[in-house]
Each structure stands twice: as C-alpha cells, then as structure tokens.
Amino acid sequence: MGKFWLSLVVLLAGFSEVNGYRPNIRPKEKVTTSEQPDPWYRTIYGTKVELVTPTVIAGVTFKAKPSPTPNPLEPWITLNKLGEPKTVKPEIKNGITKKGSPDYSTYFKVASTTTLAYEDLKAHNMDPDEVYEEKVFIEEDKTYVSLNPVIRCTPDRYFNKGPSRDISSEPFCTPQEDVQWKVGKTYFASWYTHFFRDEHSDEVIDEVKVHLSYVKEREGEKGFVKRDIPATFFSSEWLRNDEGMLAIEVQPEWLQGARTRKVVLSVQPKNVPDEEFHPLDHGILLFIDAGSRVYKHTKEQLALEEAGFTERHWLFVAITMPTVVVIALILMYFFLYANNSYRDFSDITRKAMSKKHRVIGKVSEIKKFKNLRNHKYSELPSYQTKPDKQH
C-alpha cells in the first residue's frame, strides 16, 4: 500500500511540472528611441575636413563615429539568408578571439605586378641582366567602406541557386533564393562589388542600380529558368558600388492586391545600357508576401475580452481542462484499485451467469435421464405447519 501512494505522488508531481500553474512574469519594457546619433567631423585625404551624419536603418547605425582606439571586441553586423541584420559580439576565450570581425583576405585589394632589375635589388644571386617580378596587393580606399558595420559580400559567401541548386548566386550573398520578404520589413541586398568590372580596363564599376521586377512563369515551364518579365516596379538611384548593399523596405502596393508575388532582384552596372540589361542573367528569385492577416474583433469577442476571457485565457483553459480530466480518471482508477477488497459484486455476477444458461428442453427427453422414474408434484411429500396462535 505504501508503494501505491508513493507512485501516486510521483505521478501527480510529474503532471504539475508539465502543466502546473506558473506565475505570470511580466517582461521588462524595452526602452527604444528614435533619436539619431549626433553628427561628427573628420579629416580625410590629409587636409579635407568632412561632416559625417550617422544614419540608422533597420536598427543598424551607419557612419557612426569610431572609437579613438581600435577595439578588437567591437560588435559587427551579419546578415541572415533573408538579408536581416544580426549583431555579433566578439569574445576572447583562452587568449583566442572568437566571432571576430570578418577577414576579407584579398577580395577587395587590387593586384599589381612590380618589376625589379638587378640595379634595383643588387641581389648576390642575380645575373646583371635578370629581371625579378613580384605580385603585390594594394589596399582599397577604406575612407567610406570603414563606416559600414555590416558584413560585406565576398565570393566565399555565395550560395547555390536554380532548380537543381547548381548555379552560383554571383554576385549576390543576400537574400538567398526563394525566401519570403514580408511587407513593412526592411532587408539588405548585398553583392560582391568587384564582380562588376569594365571588360576593357578591368577596373571595378563605380556605380550600379538595384531593380525589383515581377516574374511570370510560362505555362508548362513551372520551376524552369525560362520566364517572362512583365515589368520592373522598383529601381533605385545610381549607387556607389563600393558600398555593396542596399536596404529595401517592402511596400504593400508592390503586391498589387495579391497576397504573394514572385519577383527577381538584380543589379545593373553603369556600363550596361537599359536595353541590354537582363535581370534574370544574374538575378535572385524571391517572394514578397503580405505577412500575417490582421482580423478585426467582433462585438462578442470584445465583450469576452472585457470580461477577462482573452485569447491567452482560452489557451490556458484549453491546456488545463484535458489535464484535469486525465488526473481525475487516474485518481478514480487508483481509488477503485485501493478499495477493491471492500466491494462485492456477487449478486451482479450471479445474474449475469444466470443469463448465460441455455434452455435445453424437457429432462425426460434427455437420453441420460430416460430410465429415471419421475414423480408428479402432487406425489411429493408435504409438511404442514401448525398455524400461529392468535393473540
């Protein structure tokens, strides 16, 4: 009996841990501000003084005033597959910096070849007529790109796109293909700036445009590359290509009354005329979506909410009621099990057994009892009792 009550306590404790009451913890209110950081000034290219006005986009501060001394633990911003920003805070573990700012290697450097003669080096193992060639990388101008805290796009961050996922996403790093951009949210499109070069001089193109165009798949070609582009509904101004990204806020009118539209994101370099530019050549296919529907509450719903029956309350009731029923059934089972010795169902059992008796006919007709002499009821002995005396 002691084991039974111990099992019951353990069982009920498990239910209370899963579905038991928990106090309602009110989250701390987040303090937000719409104030822009103060402008600051700096001297560039030796003598040129410039005023810099920081800009906050999607919670990211661009052109912020740098710290007086370099900080290896300075937070930086990465982008997920949608192009949404996320802050990364470096940390030092066992003397090694983890999650540090990205290293761009030589992706943004300019390769150059330097030729040196014997007269320049005077190396003891060079012939007088020998020429030495050295490949060097020249650092890019970081005057403006250093003010961008968001990770830059490089070829090692490309992904695979297309129906078979066997096509490089160049020049894009974000967004990835077939993701959904929600109306009212801001996303960052990022591309590798050195992808756009002049075919004659091999110099990096200095300005680009970003386009969004509707995509209409032809019948019978669903999922294939051949598509018609009916219209380009968004085009940016000419942008500095060295920035390598653009923040795009999805507008509701872009859906044109539809719930979801398939679009292509593309970048047009300045050396390609409009009539020669094809968005699907290096574009990224994605969807723009209206997001969650907003339903208006009826009068009945408002009355219930005023009475304290909110959606959260109904959810709590929906979770609690099945648990209460299960606990009640378990308690009933254990109650019946514990009182098993105090119950007598013999009467019920006897009635049930009597119903199972079959009618097999007259006894005299049974072969086993044919030779057995039977007496009439009147021949059986009877006993008479004296009547009670009347008082």
Rank of each mutant, 00 (worst) to 15 (best):
134 E>H: 14
134 E>M: 14
134 E>S: 13
136 V>L: 11
136 V>N: 14
139 E>K: 12
142 K>N: 15
143 T>R: 08
146 S>M: 09
146 S>Y: 01
147 L>I: 02
147 L>A: 13
148 N>G: 08
149 P>V: 03
150 V>I: 09
154 T>V: 15
158 Y>T: 06
159 F>Y: 15
159 F>I: 04
160 N>P: 00
160 N>S: 13
161 K>R: 15
161 K>V: 09
161 K>E: 09
163 P>W: 02
164 S>D: 15
167 I>Q: 13
167 I>F: 09
168 S>M: 07
169 S>H: 04
173 C>N: 03
176 Q>C: 03
177 E>L: 06
177 E>P: 02
179 V>Y: 00
180 Q>M: 13
181 W>Q: 09
182 K>G: 05
186 T>G: 01
187 Y>S: 07
190 S>L: 08
193 T>K: 11
194 H>E: 07
196 F>L: 05
197 R>S: 10
200 H>L: 14
200 H>T: 14
203 E>L: 12
203 E>D: 14
206 D>L: 15
206 D>M: 12
206 D>T: 14
214 Y>C: 11
216 K>I: 08
218 R>P: 03
219 E>I: 10
219 E>R: 09
221 E>Y: 14
225 V>D: 11
226 K>L: 08
227 R>Q: 13
230 P>C: 09
233 F>W: 00
233 F>R: 06
234 F>K: 10
235 S>H: 00
237 E>A: 14
238 W>T: 03
246 L>Q: 11
249 E>M: 12
256 Q>D: 13
257 G>Q: 11
258 A>L: 12
260 T>A: 12
260 T>H: 09
261 R>K: 14
262 K>M: 15
263 V>I: 15
267 V>A: 10
274 D>P: 04
275 E>S: 15
